[in-house]
Structures are given as C-alpha cells and as structure tokens.
Design a protein around this nucleic acid. Structure first.
Length: 459
RNA sequence: GCUCCCAUCGUCUAGUGGUCCAGGACGCCGCCCUCUCACGGCGGAAACAGGGGUUCGACUCCCCUUGGGAGUACCA
C-alpha cells in the first residue's frame, strides 16, 4: 500500500474556527496514525479576500494546537501554471467552455427558474457556442469558464469511505464556473488538481463539500488524474442544533487561546466526538492518536458544546506538572510559588480561580461579601481564641489537629461553624484545599498574621 | 422548490437479523467520603422518530412519512 497523504487546505480569508480545527485535526490524525504525511496548503485563489495576516494566524493556531505539517507550506497560487494547463486540456476536449452571460442575465435566469418552480441552474446558453465564435468573442468580451457537467444521462459517483458511493445524476448537477471573468480560478479546479499534484490520497472534509466533490470527481476523471478517497464528515452544530455560528457558540482558536484554554482540552473534546470510550487517561495528542479510528468519524451532524472542552481543561489542569501549573498560576498571581500552586491545583477549574485564594499570599487581602459575613458571624472573640490557641501551643507536625481541637474546646464551635471562619480567615475563600494543607503552607507566622488581620477587620 | 447526506438515552456513541426487556462515556440525580469546592467510591433516571413491508425473528435489510443538516454563487 502506498503512503497515505492528507492535507489541510484553508483559505486565508479568516481565522481558524472550530469547524476548521476539527477538519485539520482529523486529517492530521489520519496521516499520523498511518505513518503518512500531512500537508498544509493555503488556497489563496480568491485574491480579493486572501490576506497575509491570516496565513500567519492560521499557522500560529495550528502550532498552538500541536498539529504539525510535513514539508514546506504549500500555496495554491504557486501552481497557477498547472491550473492553466488543466484548463487548456479540458478546453481541447471540449470539457470546458467559455460563458459570456452577464451576472445580470444569470440573476434573471435564476429568478425565472424559481418562479416556474425549477432548480436555479445555468441555462446552458453558451454551452454549444462554436469554438471559433467563442474564441473571437473572448478577445473583447468578458467571460468565465464553465464545465459542461449537466446533461440528461449519466452520473458522477463520489467514492466516500464513510458512507459508500454517493451518486449524483448529471441531470441534477449544474455547469459550474471554474474560472472567473478576471481570469482567476474558483475553488473547484485548483483544489482538486493540487490534491492530485500533491499526491493526496485521502480528503477529509465537511459534508458541505459533498456536492463539490461530485464536480471535482468529474474534473479529475476528465483530466485523467487520480481521484482521492473522500471522507465527508458531518458538520459541527451549535448546542442549539443550528449551524455553528458565533451566536450558537463558535469561536476562533485565537479567541479560545486568549481565554486561557489549554489547546489539549480542545483536542480532547474533538477527538472524542464519535469515539466511544477513549480511556480517560489518554491525555496527550499521541495517546489520543492511538485510539483514533477513522471509522468513528461520524457522518451525522454533531452538536458542539464548549462545556466538555472546558471540563477537559479542568481535568488537564489538575494533572499538570508543577512547572507548567505554576506558569499558569503566575499569570494571575505573579507572587505565587510552586507550593502554593500545588496546594490549590485540585480546587480550580481555570487558572484564574486562584485569585480567590489571594489572601494566602497576601495577608492584607480584603474579604468578599460572603466571606465577611461568615467572619462576622463567628465574631471577634472567636478569632481571639484561635489566635491565643495558636500562640500558646507547642509547634510540631500535628499543628492543625492540635490547634483545631483547642479552638473547639475554647469556643464550643464544631463542624462547619468551626472550620469556615478559619478557612475564610486564612484563605479568603469559602472553599478550597484541606485546612491542614493550608496551615502547613502558611506556617506559624502566616497563620498568626491572618488571624491578627481578621481581628482588626471585624473589631 | 430541487439534489444530496443523516436519524439509538440530554450529548457523543456501541450495536452489521436472534447473544439487546439495547451496552459505554460525558452530563444529570441520589448516597458515601467530607469544614467547603473538587477528587474518589457506590447507585439511579434516561433512547432504538413514526408507519408499512421482507423474515420464523428486526435497532439492525427495503419503502414511505417526519425531523435535522448541507448544497443549489464569478465563497471556499
């Protein structure tokens, strides 16, 4: 079996969005899983809308996600000569023709067809122009190039690995434009021809391309080029079941990165779509790849929800090695050290949650309203008792147990009423790590300072 | 309108004619652990869209309906 080659072929007209990310990931996984190559090719045929900044942004995002590509970045525009040549070959065989219809005419045609309940297809007006006439008019008339796909008989078969052969009757297909009146190519031909040039063996893309594939299969066959295996996956929908849009919860990768999302969280959520029961400790891209199976790439439309992704974020955060964890924590609390980060690691969903524990690092940190009400409820004498007990005891490894026992006896408080005021005084938060760990972290002076501050605050 | 794709718990899915009064994961609910949050442990509710066939037998095959998605551009 020859080498598997997949590609991700974005157009540099915008940022990488969730749907793109999934397509890129799927192609990457497929290639890597089978020891093949994964190519990155920018489809910059739409000169109007292509922008350099997006090329950089997309590369950055892919890098952020850990999706590396093989070889140089490819650009569709570099293959212009090949595209031209392909067009010439088609024209020679009369498998492409010039169309001189104006956009106004076409719009009218469509309107007319619609009013008669017919599909809005190209009328075929220019299809059978004599080649001499066509050539001579071309010298002074604007025109596009079309493919004569539409006809009464015959069909085009799109070989799809996931759903079997998909049949399209030529009768239902249109004569698509492949070259615009400004001479530039539309997506159809360059995309297919480049795949052939680049020896792409498997094309994984959204099923919004299914009908495009019909045209491209037609094209490749008439060009005597290899037709790749297609895997048209179902599209991502918003959580409301409607097309994924900004409103329904779509983001650009860049946006998520800014929000502090760990890229692996996104990868986790995405790879697991369609894959039942990937073991939960498959936390790396490599591990995920081991479990990836293209047969599980689903053909159904999938509801995407950010929740799962963020849950993975939390899970990943809880499993982060100290160094990486500290880096994230310090973005919000620069004065944090490793022992602090490790102490609160299990008690945060996102790195910014450490802000709730600022008081552990800065004894003077003010209290939230809730915390203050807990403190007031306990009262000044409670804290005095606690401070006295703390000052009066011998220091040893059971500081916490001995201390809390002493306070219990001194105040008569137990359970929540005993622990919460202490927790609030020492951390500023109503929840968090176990108290013994907190006391250990703050140390003798640290605890004293916070109790003294507390006494002052509520006196 | 036309064409194509899709259809199992809330979600992602397992299931390729009998092993399924449908299994898992996430979520949800309850209990346990517990000062709190989280973790962990245990348990629970929760689905074959509907109707026709085919068959001894249908979640599985066929048809229709319904529902959802996509395309129908000189966007990709």
């Amino acid at each position: 079996m020859s080498e598997i080659v997949t590609r991700f072929a974005p157009s540099p007209t915008g940022l990488l969005h969730l749907g793109n990310v999934r397509t890129a990931l799927l192609n990457w996984l497929y290639a890597r899983k089978h020891g093949g190559r994964f190519l990155l090719r920018f489809e910059d045929t739409d000169r109007e809308r292509s922008e350099k900044q997006f090329i950089q942004a997309i590369c950055d995002d892919l890098g952020w996600l850990g999706l590396d590509w093989d070889g140089d970045i490819l650009f569709q525009s570099d293959q212009a000569a090949q595209h031209r040549q392909a067009l010439d070959r088609l024209a020679e065989q009369e498998m492409a023709y010039r169309c001189f219809c104006t956009e106004g005419q076409l719009a009218l045609d469509r309107k007319l067809a619609a009013s008669r309940g017919l599909p809005p297809r190209y009328s075929g007006r220019c299809r059978s122009l004599a080649s001499e006439e066509s050539a001579s008019r071309a010298e002074h008339e604007a025109h596009v190039w079309r493919l004569p796909v539409h006809r009464d008989d015959g069909e085009v078969i799109v070989p799809d690995v996931l759903r079997g052969d998909v049949h399209f009757a030529c009768h239902d297909l249109d004569d698509p434009v492949i070259v615009r009146s400004d001479g530039s190519f539309t997506f159809l031909l360059p995309n297919a021809v480049d795949d052939a040039i680049d020896s792409v063996t498997h094309v994984m893309r959204g099923d919004d391309h299914l009908s495009n594939s019909a045209y491209q299969v037609w094209l490749l066959q008439h060009l005597d080029m290899a037709v790749p295996a297609y895997l048209h996956h179902g599209l991502l929908l918003g959580r409301d079941g409607a097309k994924l849009s900004k409103r329904s919860g779509s983001h650009s990768a860049a946006e998520l990165r800014q929000e502090g999302l760990m890229p692996m969280a996104l990868m986790q959520a995405m790879v697991r779509l369609g894959h039942p029961n990937i073991s939960e400790d498959a936390l790396s891209l490599d591990a995920l790849m081991q479990h990836f199976d293209a047969r599980h790439v689903s053909t159904t439309a999938i509801r995407w929800s950010d929740d799962d992704m963020w849950r993975w974020h939390t899970r990943l955060l809880h499993n982060l090695p100290a160094e990486a964890l500290l880096a994230q924590v310090r973005e919000h609390l620069p004065e944090a050290d490793e022992s602090f980060a490790l102490l609160v690691q299990g008690n945060m969903e996102r790195a910014e949650d450490v802000l709730a524990y600022r008081r552990m690092l800065d004894a003077g940190t003010a209290l939230s309203e809730e915390a203050e009400s807990v403190a007031n409820d306990a009262g000044n004498t409670f804290y005095r008792t606690a401070l006295d007990a703390w000052n009066g005891m011998a220091r040893n490894e059971n500081d916490w147990k001995i201390w809390v026992q002493a306070i219990k006896e001194g105040t008569g408080r137990t359970g929540k009423g005993l622990f919460m005021p202490l927790r609030v005084a020492l951390t500023g938060a109503l929840h968090g790590p176990e108290m013994s760990g907190i006391v250990g972290f703050l140390g003798e002076g640290g605890v004293r300072k916070r109790l003294e501050d507390m006494i002052q605050r509520i006196s």
